[in-house]
Every structure is written in structure tokens, then in C-alpha cells.
Amino acid sequence: MTEVPNPYIIDADTLTGEMRPIRRAVLSLGSNLGDRLANLQDALNTLAETPDVWVTTISPVYETEPVDSPEGAELYLNAIVLADTTLTPTRLLDRALTIEDAYGRSRSGIFNEPRTLDIDVIAVGDKILEEESLTLPHPRAHQRAFVLKPWLDLEPAAELPGKGPIAALFEQSDQTGITRRDDLVLEL
């Protein structure tokens, strides 16, 4: 027997017209090439100028050891951005990739290669999604202290959909090589 989709269930991401739900998005910013702080600030400014994206807060900046990167990779600067958006998760990812490209992101195919800018969509509301181009929540966010700690600074009671409280996830993560840099500040 073939299952027929329920016509009474509305997928908010396929709605047309002016009305779309507003969801909280968690985005991770990272850079380990060039002027790292300027790269993060430029990314933040560009996100804030994006139609249908309202940046609400930015975490402190952390300097972190590269994870699973080629030998000799430089230290990263990382931060978390919280934003409200009416964009679908896929459109938000498209915007993030466009911003990365605008700031010289190289995609040579080397796994976790050094980068001028990296913007990861960590979570969008409580959406759980697995598509070819996007998995939500981000499939490795629950293991990454450089994502969890700055997010924890902003929302101590936050939960990663399907994974649990970020405070507990942070306690279980490898916290070596992560240093808060209060001398480096991103401005909204």
C-alpha cells in the first residue's frame, strides 16, 4: 500500500507568498587565513545586511586549534551568530556559501583545508533535515567545542535538536585548544 501525504499538514518551507515562519538560526563563523578577525567581521556585516535575516547577537571570539585539518594549518578564530530568519534552511545555506565565495573561500577538495571564511548552518529552529546539500542540525556540531562553547556563552539553556542540551554536549567534547579572546571583539 502506498502512503498518501496528509493534505492537512503544511510544510512552512514550501509556502508561497509573503508569510513565512520566523525561526532562530545558529550560524558558526570561522577563519584561519588572512586577517581572520576582519574576515569574521565582514561575514557578520554581510549576514546582517541579508534580506529576511535579522542578526540578534554574536558570541565572544575564540581562537582554536584546527580540527582534522592538513598539517601546518594555522589557528582559527571562531564565533557563533544567532539570527532570526524567514529564509528556508536551504536558502540560508545558499546565502552562507555565497558570502564565503565573496571572501575568497577556496574549495579545492582537500578535507578541512585552511579557509578565509567558513560559515556553517548549525541549526534552524527545531528543524531536522537530511538532504544532499544540507543536514540539520549540523552533523558534527555536537562534537565541536568551537561551536558549543561560544553558543553556550549566548544561550546556556539551548538544545541542539535531536542531540540534547549544548551544556551537556560541551562537557562531553574535547575542549583542548580553545581559548576565549576577549581582546578580539566583533561588532553588530
Results as ranks from 00 to 15, higher is better:
Thr46Leu: 14
Glu63Val: 00
Asp153Ala: 11
Val61Ile: 09
Leu92Gly: 14
Pro156Trp: 10
Asn78Arg: 12
Tyr76Arg: 08
Pro139Val: 00
Asn45Glu: 13
Ala25Trp: 14
Pro161Glu: 08
Leu33Ile: 02
Asp101Ala: 14
Pro70Leu: 03
Ser28Tyr: 00
Thr85Gln: 03
Ser31His: 08
Asn32Ile: 02
Val26Arg: 14
Ser133Lys: 15
Glu132Gly: 11
Gly72Gln: 10
Lys163Ser: 02
Asp84Asn: 12
Asp120Phe: 02
Pro165Cys: 12
Thr90Asp: 13
Pro161Gly: 10
Leu82Ser: 06
Glu74Gln: 05
Glu100Thr: 01
Ser59Tyr: 10
Leu29Thr: 08
Asn32Ser: 00
Val61Glu: 01
Glu100Cys: 02
Lys149Thr: 03
Thr86Ala: 12
Pro161Trp: 07
Ile119Ser: 01
Arg115Trp: 11
Leu82Met: 12
Gly72Tyr: 06
Ile110Ala: 06
Glu130Ser: 06
Ala123Arg: 13
Thr57Val: 13
Val55Asn: 11
Asp35Met: 01
Leu87Ile: 07
Arg95Gly: 00
Asp153Pro: 05
Glu113Ile: 12
Asp35Gln: 05
Arg144Met: 01
Ala73Tyr: 12
Pro137Ser: 05
Glu65Val: 08
Leu148Asn: 05
Val67Leu: 04
Ala48Val: 09
Gly30Glu: 00
Asn78Pro: 01
Ala102Val: 04
Gly109Asp: 12
Arg95Ser: 03
Ala43Ile: 05
Pro114Met: 03
Pro66His: 10
Arg105Val: 07
Arg95Pro: 02
Val26Pro: 14
Pro161Met: 05
